[in-house]
């Protein structure tokens, strides 16, 4: 109890209150908003961005940055899609594992270059993003992939817990949401209870001190970026399951949605602090906001301006908070 109180006293508490206020306001404006079905839909549709966000949190914690994860995910999607279409009888574990391996490899490659070239991660990953996207567009010629095997259509519709609504339509907790939360739990365990997680935090707090403490910086960068690669592969897979199509530019160009969610979730933009719980909240707040804007029929053109304003606002609050904390010390 003491621990929960303690963790709530930090930035997460602010997010919980923000979420409650948002839900209250949106419900007052449009009562349709407040229903278990709507909330479960929000959770299902944000499961892939939730997985992206957890991966991105690892990189941010390590003191890094990556804008290439959406193109890594798209590469994974095309690999999965191609396997599904070309070899329909391929056992499902292979279909699942291959994009994850692709993600880990490409993520590790990012880490390796950032480390060896000692260049700003942003510049390296912008370059990588363009390389991957350019090659992808060239190879696929921009073609979409669809018509996947039956099991691939059916699996994402699985409901772990379900009930029926007034119209007799079944709804419930989607298996995709469960995958997202499972990744979140594992990530939280890694970060809080294993030496790898603690060292990642340490490295984000003071790289030089970490080096002197004998931490292999390259190894931990590969760990962070590789984990983001893994999450990207998985998020791509989940996204494919949701949309049942693979297109070159549905994920690319929306990286900033993920970055905004993680920063909103209280992760420090300077590395070394942030939590899985906060990140999950950040994703949910972003999803609730988008959903509410849609339900309230705010034109889609407005969404991005909102998003930008929220990102800047939340970063400004974080920066002001960290400066106040510094002054106190």
């Amino acid at each position: 109890m003491e621990r929960i109180k303690h963790s709530l006293s930090t930035s997460s508490a602010f997010l919980v209150y923000l979420l409650i206020i948002m839900i209250a306001v949106f419900t007052a404006i449009n009562p349709n908003f407040f229903s278990a079905e709507n909330f479960l839909t929000i959770l299902r549709s944000s499961s892939y961005s939730g997985i992206f966000a957890i991966g991105f949190l690892f990189v941010l914690l390590s003191g890094g940055l990556d804008v290439s994860f959406a193109s890594i995910a798209t590469i994974g999607q095309y690999v999965t899609g191609t396997i599904l279409i070309q070899i329909p009888g391929m056992p499902w574990p292979i279909v699942v594992i291959v994009p994850l391996i692709v993600g880990v490899l490409l993520g590790s490659f990012n880490a390796f270059m950032i480390h060896k070239l000692n260049a700003p991660p942003l510049i390296i990953t912008i370059a990588v993003q363009n390389i991957l996207f350019g090659v992808l567009q060239f190879i696929t010629k921009g073609h979409w992939l669809y018509n996947f095997p039956k099991w691939f259509n059916q699996f994402p519709l699985t409901l772990v817990v379900s009930t029926t609504n007034a119209n007799g339509v079944k709804y419930g907790l989607s298996v995709l949401t469960v995958i997202w939360f499972a990744v979140a739990l594992i990530a939280a365990f890694i970060l809080n209870r294993t030496i790898y997680g603690r060292r990642l935090y340490a490295m984000g707090g003071n790289v030089e001190a970490a080096r002197r403490a004998g931490i292999n910086i390259l190894k931990y960068r590969i760990f962070a970026y590789g984990f983001l690669g893994f999450c990207s592969g998985l998020a791509g897979l989940v996204h494919t399951m949701v949309t049942q199509t693979v297109a070159p530019n549905t994920l690319v160009g929306n990286e900033f949605y993920t970055i905004a969610a993680v920063v909103l979730g209280g992760a420090s933009i300077f590395g070394g602090s942030g939590s899985v719980f906060g990140t999950v909240l950040g994703v949910i707040i972003m999803a609730v906001l988008t959903n509410a804007l849609t339900i309230m029929r705010v034109p889609a053109y407005w969404h991005q301006a909102f998003l930008g304003a929220i990102l800047i606002g939340s970063m400004a609050v974080t920066a002001a908070n960290s400066r106040r904390a510094m002054k106190k010390g």
Binding site: Y201, N206, E208, A209, R212
Partner: peptide, 20 residues
Amino acid sequence: DLALFPNLSIKENIAFFLYG
């Protein structure tokens, strides 16, 4: 120039080498 982790607690900084 101290080699501490400002974002971690005192006890974790102190026990950091135990991780290895």
